[in-house]
Amino acid sequence: MGRAVLRRSVQMVITLWLVSILGFVIIQLPPGDFLTLLESQLEEQRLSSAQIESALTGLRARYGLDQPVYVQYLRWMSSLLRGDLGYSMALRADVNELLSERLVLTLVISFAAMVFSLALALPIGVYSAMKQYSWADYLFTVLGFLGLALPNMLLALILIFLAVTVFNASTIGGLFSPEYITADWSPAKVLDLAKHLWLPAFIVGFSSTAGTIRVVRAQMLDTLGEPFIQTARMKGLSENRVITRHALRVALNPVVSGLGLSLPGLISGETITALVLGLPTIGPLLLNALFAEDMYLAGSILVILSGALVVGNFLADLTLAWLDPRIRLVEP
């Protein structure tokens, strides 16, 4: 177990390093870099060329933009490691400040969406498998394929539309009631957040639910056909216990490893939902940063999201190993 964890940790660090290089390359990619953009903006503001030049040199020096690329990368990396995500030139603010609260909210929404999705998919998937080919199974299968076929964006829009028209969701838009937006964190504010959270969590989670139902159903069917399930029944256990203790335990493994991979889907779903609902999360910020060629902001967000994906996978693997002796006890 220990060695396997160590090996996976090393793999994770290497992956994170590659991700950082990729992030940096993306930062360097835009054809006109941000300074050119800024220069033209400053010119429009009719500043003297000397003023413009001094502003630009200051920025160049701060970020080493006049240095060779690898020096720029090393500077960026070392400040990243120190927790300094850089400076958003478009928004004229430290990226740290811009991101911190939004990151927390994004994680909260994604986590709530995941919980919501599992809470829906697990019982439905198990039920479908146990009543294979019943009308309920067919219904869920059709709904599932519909869910898989619809683009998430369309699904989000439909769900938002339904939420507003049918449920008359007055809390739609934003994550806080006006009086709490600038307030400090307090139990009341958390409660207010929860009240606003269900809709985005529902919308973001719903789009991954269909896929999860299919996985749970297929895994349950496979597992229920295994001889060890026959053994469990032979012991005189109740069907309830056979399902929950014997079958689910094995069928859930692939679902757990799927959770680590579901993160990108959650983030992209979250971006669309956040844009439409006007939520202060990371997604819309990333989109704007990309439009504005705001390299440090965009790069930092990409690195953070990819990092979250890698770490999520690592955690999913650890959970798997903890659950399954076949993985836990095999020394490489």
Binding site: P227, T231, M234, G236, H246, V250
Partner: peptide
């Protein structure tokens, strides 16, 4: 109450008849 207590059964594939976890 009969299964495993009055009548028990063992199967063809011992590799798959025990719960792996």
């Amino acid at each position: 109450a009969i299964r495993g207590r009055q009548i028990s059964m063992i199967f063809q594939e011992p590799m798959r008849s025990l719960h792996p976890m």
